[in-house]
Design a protein around this nucleic acid. Sequence first.
RNA 1: GCCGGAGUGGCGGAACUGGCAGACGCGCACGACUCAAAAUCGUGUUCCGCAAGGAGUGUGGGUUCGACUCCCACCUUCGGCACCA
Length: 932
Amino acid sequence: MGLFHFPGEGQMADRYIPQEIEPKWQARWEADRLYESEPAGDKPKYYILDFYPYPSGEGMSVGHARNYVPTDVVARYYRMKGYNVLHPMGFDAFGLPTENAAIKLKANPHDLNERYSANYVRQYKLMGLSYDWSRLLNSAHDDYYHWTQWIFVQIFKSWYDPRLNKAAPISDLERELSQVGSAVIFDYIDAHPEQVGVITKGAPSVTAAEWNAMSRREQNAYLMNYRLAFRTETQVNWDPVDKVVVADEEVENGRAWRSGALVEKKVIRQWFFRITAYADRLINDLDTVDWPEKIVKMQRNWIGKSEGAEVRFEIRDLRLDASHGKSPISHPPALISVYTTRPDTLWGATFMVLSPEHPLVGAITTPEQREAVEKYQAYAKGETEEQRTAEHKEKTGVFTGAYATNPVNGEPIPVWVADYVLMGYGTGAIMAVPAHDQRDFEFARKFNLPIKIVVMPEGDSRIEIRDSSDSQSRISNLESLSSEMTAAYEANEGVMVNSGPITGVPASESVRKTIAWLAEQGVGKRRVNYKIRAWLISRQRYWGTPIPIIHTADGEVAVDESELPVKLPPVANYEPTATGESPLANIAGFVDTPRGRRETDTMATWACSSWYYMRFSDPHNDNAPFSPSEIAYWLPVDMYVGGAEHAVLHLLYSRMWTKVLYDLSVVPFIEPFKSLRNQGMILSPQKKVDEKGREYYEKMSKSKGNVITPDDVIAEHGADALRGYEMFISDFSQTVPWSTSGVPGVRRWLERVWRIVLSPEEDKGQPVEFSARELRRIAHQTIQRYEHDLASFSFNTAVSALMEFTNALYKARDAGLYGSPEWAEAIDILLHLVAPVGPHMAEELWQRTGHAYSIHKQPFPVVDVAAAKEDEITIVVQVNGKVRDRIVVAAGADESIVRAAALATEGAQRYIGAGTPKMVRYVPGRLVNIVV
RNA sequence: GCCGGAGUGGCGGAACUGGCAGACGCGCACGACUCAAAAUCGUGUUCCGCAAGGAGUGUGGGUUCGACUCCCACCUUCGGCACCA
């Protein structure tokens, strides 16, 4: 002792007072820069990262600490294991939450950002988190968004060459267009349907002559069909509350992710990233990552790959009306393409449906139907997403008056317009097969359209499929069956009937056969479709990274890299406008440039977060986003931890950016996050009961007044107790209510650690049996369990292993082992294992037991496998699978000895009696089961 | 509707590839210490039963010498997607 002089020296000095030791060590660690990573080198690295947060004015709750504490424990563990650990933190500071708060408080978002970020840092430090603070970054600082803009420019200057299957300079494309036009590219995509996403759907083809005849402005406009960052006018989701557009990924059930407002449709010119070009790679490379299955599935579903065929239907007797005869380039006026995953059911197509927004609706509608169709189109346009989809609304639609020819059998079928067909998917037109598609079935029933069965379930007793001798009765049977149907038969088992060349083919092979047949006939071909659409990145808001583009006489051009960053101008008024124009548009000094008008939209924060984990490798580089050697050394992230709510947002976008940068040779890896784990949510501890009498727990929120902060818990019990409980509370991925009595439980354990280390002879209990050999065994077993549990993210069991070890030390103390070499070793192991969990206490005890600072620089203890081994094991004796007795045998005991001993036990004998057992099964090291 | 989790004591939760269900902690009960209390220490704590014993991991079936674990059907619950042709 002697180093510390507490009031009432002696008794008091030995009490565990976290409020005194924690600030002291935190200051020391910070002064010594204890947790800073070393630069790239030969040492093995471990990069463990938390999702960086946006700093909110409310600060953090104990729920936020749920992932920060375990990752900190793992980071500390890896440092002790000798790794060069990168464990940084930063802030996703741009974006609506901060901007909205600033508007509400009539404050400046720059100032709020600094204040809120500082408060987060304060809270992180309070928890004793071992971040490398020298690498702290803030996405709203211009030294960061400089490089966000730089990456945007790289993406803007690229297109996706389907033949190389990677991004390439747009100048390569320009050269090709001037030499051979777009034909080679278009033909290639046609032959490789997986590549449909590399250019804008419906983009016109050009010849070299046409290209060369274009003005520079026209060429630039045409290139927007190819660029990986492009601007186009399309229907987008408009959030009327935040007055901003939102990406598809940000809409949940028709409502905006953040504001909860019902989104409206709006046609505005916007900036997008062509994530569709990467659809296939984004699916395939999921096989290379160690991520929760749930997130992988969500991404696969979101990308939504499906395979089928595109089939052309010709419109009959098309009378081109002068006012509506304007034909879009991609569709010859008399042909309508449909996409189907079940081309084999073509013989059952009894009508066609076009989306109300389909460009050919006007051209094919007959004069008699024109009014009804236009009325319907207007109705569909006015619908919100919710009205269109919700409550499984009844089908609506109108007949266009036109008929198409079914290409497989020449039959005329009516063409309808209905809002259940979406313009954004496939070709915006479908063939309707009501017998085998539930939606078409409902539509057919409502409008009295024919239903024709072409797939028969095998073994349907009403039909004799295999009897081909009487086709006439078979068909009439099918007709009566179709009128009896109450739902479509959607299964893909059965046999094709009434289907021309594929009649009799099992449904399992029919799709493949039909596609081959269609290609032969020249009416259709194999197609691939993806649900994912271009990623909408522009926002009409002030508080974001300015998009580095200038609108010149020649069209949109990137700001020269030497002129980056395009800085966000300080302004007095930054409120959003209802017109869909950015507030930056009103600032003449920002907008006007010598070359033209500056783009005034900003990027959504998804751009900032798509590469921040790369910047951490070299955060102060002024010449590049990062140096090649640092990025190659540190990346990819070894362990990435955060909430599951970013499954198809940040986690998808980051993967795309990584792949683009990989293609452009900026980074040397294809996936940014090797391992991913999601933490569960922490709910309020108060149990509530709903109207139905069911119990539930609320989320913590300021409005409900049920937030528990780390600050509160630390003030009462200390950071180490908070940390221990954050780990101990539950399985890491489970959602769980906070328990106010849980922290004192962990605190009690810490106090037991404190006492057994500093004053083991106090409160000595009754003597018990406990050997030095046993103490060594449990010490080394605890090392094994602890390491195993950290590797599998079982933090709760890691803590309970430490608790059990502590309990064993009390027993060993009562057995008189204090003072033995085994005791000293056990205490040494205990302190090392406690260090990552309770870093302050471990440091204090380390010093008080006479060791040199710092325990966090000590190597992790090495397991003595021999010591950890049991030398006696308990074998369970079962009779008919029920435990009746137990025997203790030497670990290596011979099978025959164990069997004999088991049979001889009293518990076994009672059931065996005079007879002989039918069977005796021995499971080495575990049990003997006697069957009588 | 489709896809994916999860259902174990009064509570949070353990149980590796099928092998002692309920580790560890909370709570509770009793005891020790104390004039007393707190703190601490010790003992007990799935349910029924005085006990012997029996039952038991959402429900019902199955496979197995043996099932929380595997298979089938279902119920509840939490996420995600949702007219995607």
